[in-house]
């Protein structure tokens, strides 16, 4: 999985040292209570469980998510102390152990 390109899109903007992060992840976020239309069997839950945002390697925001976050999740927040050129890293892991890592340069 490590070589899979990230499907997460992260946009940053910075003003007076405050960085605004807007991240869009690609994930089905399956609830586990939906039924397959053909077989009638329950479709197992499949969702992101943890998201971590690091600014130059330091965690500024981490999230514990369940199935109540919408498909293709969006996360937006702001943090203080950023400068242009700093690195923002966004990682997620899901309940099946799949992972995704995205690095962006803050600008």
């Amino acid at each position: 999985m490590a070589d899979t390109p990230s499907t997460t899109r992260v946009r940053t903007s910075i003003a007076e040292g405050i960085c605004t992060v807007r991240a869009m992840m690609r994930h089905v976020m399956e609830t586990g209570s939906r039924k397959d239309r053909q077989t009638g069997a329950l479709i197992p839950a499949h969702h992101i469980t943890e998201v971590t945002c690091e600014h130059n390697g330091r965690v500024v925001m981490s999230c514990a998510w369940g199935t109540g976050i919408a498909r293709n999740p969006l996360l937006s927040f702001r943090f203080r102390g950023a400068r242009a050129g700093d690195i923002l890293t966004l990682r997620w892991v899901d309940n099946r152990g799949a992972t995704d890592v995205t690095h962006v340069t803050i600008e």
Binding site: V60, C63, A64, I69, A70, S76, F77, F79, R80
Partner: peptide, 19 residues
């Protein structure tokens, strides 16, 4: 969801989409 705030994280705009 639970969102954990580290040092420097602001609480003036936390946005997501829920079901």
């Amino acid at each position: 969801a639970r969102f954990d705030f580290g040092d420097g994280a602001l609480t003036d705009t936390l946005a997501t989409r829920i079901k």
